[in-house]
Design a protein around this nucleic acid. Structure first.
Lengths: 402, 402
DNA sequence: ACTATTTCGTCATGGCCGTTTACAAATTAG
DNA sequence: CTAATTTGTAAACGGCCATGACGAAATAGT
C-alpha cells in the first residue's frame, strides 16, 4: 500500500503525508534522514536530541532505515567526552541514487548523485542542439542516461528517479516542455520520449539552479531570488526553502519585467522588457559582436581583455538588471539576490552597476547581491539532488521499491 | 503544558505543531473545526469522510470540541436520504471571539467576530489621526476595544485575541510599527501601549485586506496579488493560501516598483516609482485637486460627475499600475489580481487602462483583474478573522485558556 | 403494516507508535 | 578501582486511530 507522494513536482514541497500514525512515522523517518544527511555522522542519541524524540524511538527508526539500506552504521565514535561513545550513523553510499540530466543549448549532461550528495558518475556530450527536433536529442540523452545508470549500478547504486533540466517553461505536470525558445521546442512531452523504469520529472533549468544554490550553496538563506540567464533571463523565487512556481508554473519571468515602458518592442508583446537590455542577444549587439558559439565565454574574455565596448554593454545591462531587481526586491523582500548560471561568469562587470542601481533605488539597507559558486554546474546538480531530496523526504516510499 | 504556537504571526502559517501523537491529535481537531466551519452544518459521518478519518475517531474528536464549547450539536438533520439521519454539528456561536481593530488615517474601528464568522459587535470613531502621537490614538482605540469586548461578553463570547491593522510597515515580531507615513509613526511598539489580557498582534492593513479577500471573498483563488492603496500603495502576495511577508516583513511594496526609471524622484531614494504616478497625492495633483479630507470619495465623485481632468488622471494612474503589475505578474504568475481597499471604489476609472496595459504587455492569456467586494471593510474583517483562524488552527490551545 | 436496507453514532478490541523506566555496556574523572 | 556519565536496548505503558459489531433511526419495497 503506497500512497501517492510528490504528486505535483519534486522541485517543490510535495509533502502531503496523511495525518495518521503511519504518516507520523514516515515524517519521523524523514526527519532522521535529513538530520543525518545534513549534520554528518551522528549517534542515535544526537539525532534524538536534535529532532526532539527519545533515544528509544530513534533506535527503532534507525533500525528500519538500516534494514532498508538507507543508513549505515560506521562503528563507535572516538570519544572526547565522558560516557559511552555512540555508534556513528551515516547516510548510505550505496542504495538509491538521484539521476540528474540537463538539456542545454550546446550540450547534454547526465550525472548520478548518491544519498550522501556525492557525484558518482557523469557523462557529457557537447554539440549544438538549437533547432534540432526533440526526438534525436532525447534519444542521445537516453544513451547518456543508460551509461551513467550502468556505471552507478556497478558501484552498488540503483536509480531512484530522473530529473531533467531544460531551458524553457515546463508545465505543472512536470513532464511537458511548454516552450523552449533556445531549442525551438513547443509542447513536448518528455515522458513519452524518455521511457524509464524509474520516475521522470522535468523542470526549468533556472529553477534547478536555484535549488542547487539552496541545497549546496554556503550560507544561502531560505528566502532569496536566484537570477540566471542563457538567452532568456530567468529568475527563481525561493520562499521559505521552497520554490515559488506560480499558477501555471511560469513564475520568475524576470526577463519580461518592464524596465523602460517606452523601450524597444519585445516578442512577448511588451516594450522595454529587461531582456531587451540585458538579454544575451541585446548585450552582444550593444557590444558590437556577432552571435557565435560560446557567447558568454566570448563576452567574458573580451571584457577581461579590457574591451571598452563590451564593458560598457555589460555595465548597461547591469543597470537594467538593477532596475528590474528593484521591483522584484520591493515586491518580495528577499534576504539576498544570487546571480547564477551564465551570469556568474559575467558578474565582475555586471555587479558594480547592478548594485549601484539597486542601492540607489531602495530605501534602508540594500538587499545583498552575491554570485553563485556553483556556476554552470548548478542546474545539473540541482536536478540530481532534487531526486535525492525526494528520497530523504519519504524514505519508506523508496525502501518499498528496493 | 502549552507549547508555544503561532510564534511568528497569526496572519501567516504559524503552524508548527510537533510531530508526535499529541500533535497529530491537535491537527485532527483543527481539521474537524476547519471542515465544519467551511462547509456549514455537517454530521460526524460527513466530517469523517471529508478528512479521511473513521467515524469513531471523529466522534471522540467532536466530543472533545463540544466539551470545550467550540462545536455545538444542532440536533438531527432532516433526512432526504435513506438511513439514520446524522446529528448536525456547527461551530459554536458562543465561546471565543476574534477582536479586530483598525487604525486608519481618518478613523478607528473595532469589531468582534465569532467562530461562525459573524460580526457580533462593532464600534467606530471618525476623526483624523494624521500626525497625532501614538499614545492618545491608541488610548482611544483601547476604549473602543473595551466597549466591543464588553458587548461581546454580554452575548456569551470571550476575546481570544486582538489583531490590529495599521497603515504601515510592521516588524516581524507583529508588535511594532516600523514606519507609518500616513500617521507619522516610527518604531512604535503597540503591545506596550495597548495592554490586554489576551494576545495582541499587529499587521499591515493591506495584508489583512488580502486575507479577508482570501477567507471571505467569493471564488478567490489561493494564489493572487491583492493591491490596495491609501497614500502609499501596498500589495499583498498570497501564495498557496498564505501571506508572503519577506525577510523583514516588507514584501509587497508595489508602490516603489520602478515604472519610469528616469521619472520624478521619490522619497524612497528611487526615481519614477509607481507611487509617483498612481499614489493618492500624485493623482490629486494630476487632477488639479487639493488634498482634503475624504480624498478617495472626492476623486470618485468627480469622476462620476464626468470631470475630464480627474478621469484622465485616473486613466494615467491605471496605466502606471498596469506597468508595475506586468512586472509583478511576470515574477509571480498569480491566478488573479484583486483591487481592494480604496482602489475598489476607483476601479471603474482605473480598470480599463490598467487591464489594457497589462494585456498588451503579457504574452498568452492575460492575468484576470478583479475588484474586491469587501471594499474598505476588508482590513478590519481580515484582522478579526485572523484571530478566528488561529482558533480554528489550534482549538486545544484556546480550550485550555477557557 | 412489516421487513429489508441503508446510514449514523458508539463501544470494545486491537495495532501502531512514541514515552517512560530500567538496565547493561562503555567511557572518563578522580 | 570506584563513581559518574552517556549510549543503546528492552519491557511496560499510554495515547490515538482503525476495525468490526451493534443498536438506532430513517427510507424502500412488498
Amino acid at each position: 500500500m503506497t500512497a501517492p507522494l510528490h504528486e505535483a513536482h519534486p522541485t517543490g514541497a510535495g509533502r502531503a503525508l496523511p495525518n495518521t500514525q503511519q504518516g507520523m512515522r514516515r515524517r519521523n523517518l524523514a526527519r532522521v534522514m535529513h538530520t543525518v544527511s545534513a549534520e554528518g555522522p551522528l549517534s542515535r542519541a544526537a539525532v534524538a536530541s536534535r529532532i526532539g524524540l527519545t533515544r528509544a524511538a530513534v533506535s527503532t527508526l534507525v533500525d528500519e532505515l538500516i534494514r532498508s539500506g538507507l543508513l549505515e552504521e560506521l562503528g563507535p565514535e572516538r570519544p572526547g567526552r565522558v560516557g559511552r561513545p555512540g555508534s556513528a550513523l551515516a547516510v548510505s553510499g550505496r542504495g538509491p541514487a538521484g539521476i540528474g540530466a540537463e538539456i542545454g543549448v550546446d550540450h547534454l549532461a547526465v550525472c548520478a548523485v548518491d544519498l550522501r550528495g556525492e557525484v558518482r558518475s557523469r557523462a557529457i556530450r557537447h554539440g549544438a542542439n538549437r533547432g534540432r527536433a526533440p526526438e534525436p536529442v532525447v534519444a542521445e540523452l537516453h544513451q547518456l542516461v543508460r551509461r551513467v545508470v550502468a556505471e552507478a549500478e556497478s558501484e552498488g547504486l540503483w536509480p531512484a528517479g530522473l530529473a531533467v533540466a531544460v531551458p524553457g517553461l515546463v508545465a505543472r505536470d512536470a513532464r511537458t516542455v511548454v516552450r523552449a525558445p533556445n531549442l525551438d521546442w513547443r509542447d513536448t512531452d518528455l515522458a513519452d520520449l524518455l521511457p524509464t523504469d524509474f520516475s521522470l520529472t522535468v523542470g526549468n533549468e533556472a529553477d534547478f539552479g536555484a535549488l542547487a544554490e539552496l541545497w549546496l550553496g554556503h550560507g544561502t538563506p531560505r528566502d532569496f531570488l536566484h537570477v540566471s540567464a542563457e538567452i532568456g533571463i530567468g529568475a527563481a523565487v525561493v520562499v521559505d526553502g521552497g520554490l515559488l512556481r506560480g499558477t501555471r508554473g511560469f513564475a520568475g519571468e524576470l526577463g519580461h519585467v518592464p524596465v523602460q515602458p517606452d523601450g524597444p518592442e519585445c516578442p512577448c508583446g511588451g516594450r522595454g522588457c529587461l531582456e531587451q537590455y540585458a538579454g544575451e542577444e541585446a548585450v552582444l549587439r550593444a557590444a558590437g559582436l556577432e552571435p557565435g558559439e560560446d557567447r558568454v565565454g566570448l563576452l567574458a574574455g573580451r571584457a577581461a581583455d579590457g574591451d571598452e565596448a563590451v564593458r560598457r554593454a555589460l555595465r548597461d545591462a547591469g543597470t537594467a538588471f538593477g532596475i528590474a531587481l528593484t521591483g522584484a526586491v520591493n515586491l518580495l523582500d528577499p534576504e539576498s539576490v544570487v546571480l547564477g548560471g551564465a551570469l556568474a561568469g559575467l558578474a565582475p562587470w555586471l555587479l558594480p552597476s547592478l548594485e549601484a542601481e539597486l542601492d540607489r533605488r531602495t530605501a534602508g539597507p540594500a538587499c545583498p547581491v552575491s554570485v553563485s559558486r556553483l556556476g554552470p554546474e548548478g542546474p545539473l546538480l540541482g536536478a540530481a539532488h532534487s531526486v535525492v531530496r525526494a528520497v530523504l523526504d519519504d524514505p519508506v516510499a523508496v525502501a518499498e521499491r528496493a
